[in-house]
Amino acid sequence: MASYVGMFVGLILASAVLMGIVMFVPSLLLPSYIKIILFFISLVLDAMAFTSRYYSYLIGPLLKHRKKHVILSNENPYWLAQSGDTILRKSGENFIATVYISIPLYRSATEMEDDEKLDFSQQISRLVGLSKDPVRYTSELYVMNKDSYIQKLKERITMTENEEADLQSKDAPKNELDRVRGKLAMWRNMLDSIGKGFSFELSTYMTVSATGVKEYEASSLAQQKAKELMSGVGSIFGVPPSIITGADLLRFVEPEYLLPISTVTEQISKNIQEQVI
């Protein structure tokens, strides 16, 4: 039985009992001002009972915290399985394992004839109807991770600035100083041009989940479903799909991997500089 049904039954029964007390207990035993309080509580419980249909996850924490910032969960939303190819989370007594499968599609509509475009659309329709279990198909446009490249450029700039300072302190010849300054300008220009805009990548993947009483049970069921889907995708598109593992998984789950931090910071500082100027 779903948790919201239990909550609804409890609340509606409590509401009915209170309303029954208002209706059937004589006014001699229960004064009217107490009855109106019970009447009010009964209606509040009734409204809460109806609300629990969709908001059962909120009612408990809302009453418990009674603050403006309500904590529904203080735990990480997921953890990676030891094998690194499955995302796990706990739901009640069960575990839910989720597997991400990459679909390597590198076809472009600009290179297709009308027949091929129609075929492609029909292939997508077949893909969507592939499984009886809920499967999510996603096309994701994300910012290319240039963090390591930007870091390398920044290190080069710092090193060249140090080199320039050294030469200045030693009264080095002008041509030597010009050479280092030229190098410095080159690295700075490169960083500028990289920071000017994002480069994007487009990935297509699908997601499937399975529930199990134990972690390994959920994981193996999800992997099994994934393998079935992969063979279906292979036969529709003729491409080799693969299960996404490790750090690559995070790109599809965490927002900071969608917009990598150094790449983003560089862009923000560029925007601020432009605004100031």
Binding site: V128, G129, S131, K132, D133, P134, V135, R136, Y137, T138, S139, E140, L141, Y142, V143, G197, F198, F200, L258, L259
Partner: peptide, 14 residues
């Protein structure tokens, strides 16, 4: 024409 990240999801079930 879009210059920010986005995901288009199709959640399907037979």
């Amino acid at each position: 024409n879009i210059n920010f990240p986005f995901k288009f999801h199709v959640l399907a079930s037979g």
